[in-house]
């Protein structure tokens, strides 16, 4: 656990995350717009409107422009024959070791946004935990899924 894992996830992840975040930000902006309209129509207090607009600007900057890049830079994974090694987290860096013989099942998943960029996520489940590698190119994700499921043998002492 001294060194970080070597592989980065697909660079397109940044775009996919930006789009997802932007979709959420639309809702935040809608609330601000409603507040502005209310201010002019019904004398809704101005300071609340200003706070809402400020929150919208800050949160849009953070979730759409700043965080996806930082998040991508931190996301790393590496699959060995004996275990899977994952790193993620922006402020809190988290590194996880998952032994192959503890893996119960592995699955790939592709939502509409990931599909647009030909990406897929891989979820690895043990009896106690689930770990998700968020955005790999579809091909790598499938290979990874197949590789992990072959490597994950059943231990005689499973749960």
């Amino acid at each position: 656990m001294r060194k970080p894992p070597v592989h980065t996830i697909s660079k397109d992840a940044i775009k996919a995350w930006k789009i997802t975040a932007a979709l959420y930000e639309i809702i935040v902006w809608l609330i601000s717009i409603v507040a502005i309209v209310l201010h002019f129509v019904l004398d809704f207090p101005l300071w609340i409107v200003l706070i809402l607009i400020l929150t919208s600007i800050v949160s849009t900057y953070l979730t759409v422009f700043l965080l996806p890049k930082l998040r991508w830079r931190r996301w790393r994974y590496e699959v060995f024959d004996q275990e899977i090694y994952i790193q993620h987290g922006i402020l809190v860096v988290s590194r996880t070791l998952i032994p192959m013989i503890r893996v119960q099942h592995v699955e790939t998943e592709q939502g509409p946004i990931l599909k647009k960029f030909d990406l897929a996520s891989v979820s690895i489940s043990t009896a106690a935990t689930t770990h998700k590698i968020p955005a790999l190119s579809n091909e790598i994700a499938s290979d990874l899924r197949d590789r992990i499921s072959t490597l994950a043998r059943v231990d005689e002492d499973d749960v």
Binding site: V93, S94, T96, T126, A128, T129
Partner: peptide
């Protein structure tokens, strides 16, 4: 053999 996964967490102050 009973430990399913091991995780290390570290924030910038810890680091």
């Amino acid at each position: 053999k009973r430990i399913q996964a091991l995780n290390k967490k570290q924030h910038f102050l810890h680091k």
